[in-house]
Amino acid sequence: MQKLKKTYKFAIKTSLYLTMLLTLLLSVFLYYTNALSWLVLPFIVIFYILSFITIQYRVERFIYRRVKKIYDDLTLLEATTLRNQPITTDMATLTKEIDKYAKDKKLEIETLKVREEYRKEFLGNVSHELKTPLFTVQGYLLTLLDGAVEDKKIRTKYLNRANKGVERLIYIVKDLDMITKLEVGDLSLNKEVFDIVELIQSVFDLLEMKAAKKKITLTFDMDYPEPIMVHADRERIQQVLTNLIVNSIKYGREKGTTEVSIENLIKNKVIVRVTDNGEGIASEHIKRIFERFYRVDKSGSRKEGGSGLGLSIVKHIIEAHDERIYIESEVDVGSEFSFSMEKAE
């Protein structure tokens, strides 16, 4: 049996109280007047029914008007979840709906605040990253315009430095353009079957000189005599590996090691791990490490160069493959970045 609506309960109880009061008064009246007592019972029943109908109607109308105003007010706030539902006069249901709406709005406001903070920080970072090379280029060009252009030695030196500043600007803009395309899905992947072991070795060869400057060893965790075939965009995965290994060299310790391993994850997946024994990343930075321009060390990391977009690009490329990237790190112990890949059939 379904529970009675709250307004019905209110009407029933109120009618009962009124009927009891009237019965009491009527009994006193009949006691003193000796009127016809057989009329009392039908009168009480009729009075109770009429009281119930009147009270129920008035309560329904009162609540409906108040609730309709609430719904109308919320509609102005684009409360689509409420607007698409029929208006209810049940207080319990209404309370749940309003409570849910309030929680959703609170979450929405908090999300907007976080996004606003991220937007401000992002714009500040973009401004800083672009400002430094721009001012550098401008400084060299103004020096040349002020007369240094006549000195062939200085002219060549300053033009080369200005050119490096322009190259850095182009590098940042290209990375930003790539992230934008990855986010909106405009950058199509050219998937093919290739040997991931061979690709990692080619990245090692490419970065061998860079690693040698810090006496860092680039190595596999073991020998892989057989090829491990995967299905992905070879060029993009090479970019992922390059960014991860370059980062391990940048923040690795002198005479350290960067080790890459390939493991079977499940039947049709492998996981590639890039591990170093460098300075590591504090836990409070890990959740933001893939954000654009986010830097753990605001000063030192800028000296290392780069656009500050490498890890963000890595994350977007992996997610464009419908795969996941993971990070484990401990300060003064090292970091491990790992990502899954689809094995070729």
Results as ranks from 00 to 15, higher is better:
residue 115 R to V: 14
residue 39 L to G: 01
residue 201 Q to N: 14
residue 27 S to I: 13
residue 119 R to P: 01
residue 341 M to P: 01
residue 279 E to S: 15
residue 128 H to V: 01
residue 113 K to A: 12
residue 62 F to D: 06
residue 99 D to F: 11
residue 207 L to P: 00
residue 177 D to A: 14
residue 211 A to E: 13
residue 88 T to G: 09
residue 17 Y to H: 10
residue 9 K to F: 04
residue 244 L to D: 02
residue 255 K to A: 05
residue 9 K to C: 06
residue 254 E to Q: 11
residue 298 K to M: 10
residue 50 L to G: 05
residue 67 V to F: 12
residue 316 H to K: 12
residue 136 T to Q: 09
residue 93 T to W: 13
residue 70 I to L: 13
residue 72 D to T: 07
residue 117 E to I: 04
residue 240 V to G: 01
residue 245 I to C: 09
residue 283 S to R: 05
residue 70 I to A: 09
residue 225 P to E: 15
residue 201 Q to I: 03
residue 148 A to Q: 07
residue 6 K to A: 08
residue 160 N to S: 15
residue 166 V to F: 11
residue 213 K to S: 11
residue 177 D to E: 12
residue 29 F to L: 05
residue 269 K to S: 08
residue 84 N to R: 04
residue 77 L to P: 02
residue 25 L to V: 06
residue 264 N to C: 09
residue 78 E to M: 08
residue 217 T to E: 15
residue 113 K to L: 13
residue 235 E to S: 12
residue 118 Y to A: 02
residue 164 K to I: 05
residue 86 P to A: 03
residue 230 V to R: 00
residue 27 S to D: 06
residue 82 L to E: 01
residue 257 T to L: 07
residue 267 K to H: 04
residue 53 I to L: 12
residue 233 D to L: 04
residue 261 S to Y: 03
residue 3 K to N: 14
residue 120 K to I: 13
residue 36 L to K: 13
residue 268 N to G: 03
residue 121 E to N: 10
residue 151 D to Y: 12
residue 268 N to P: 00
residue 87 I to W: 15
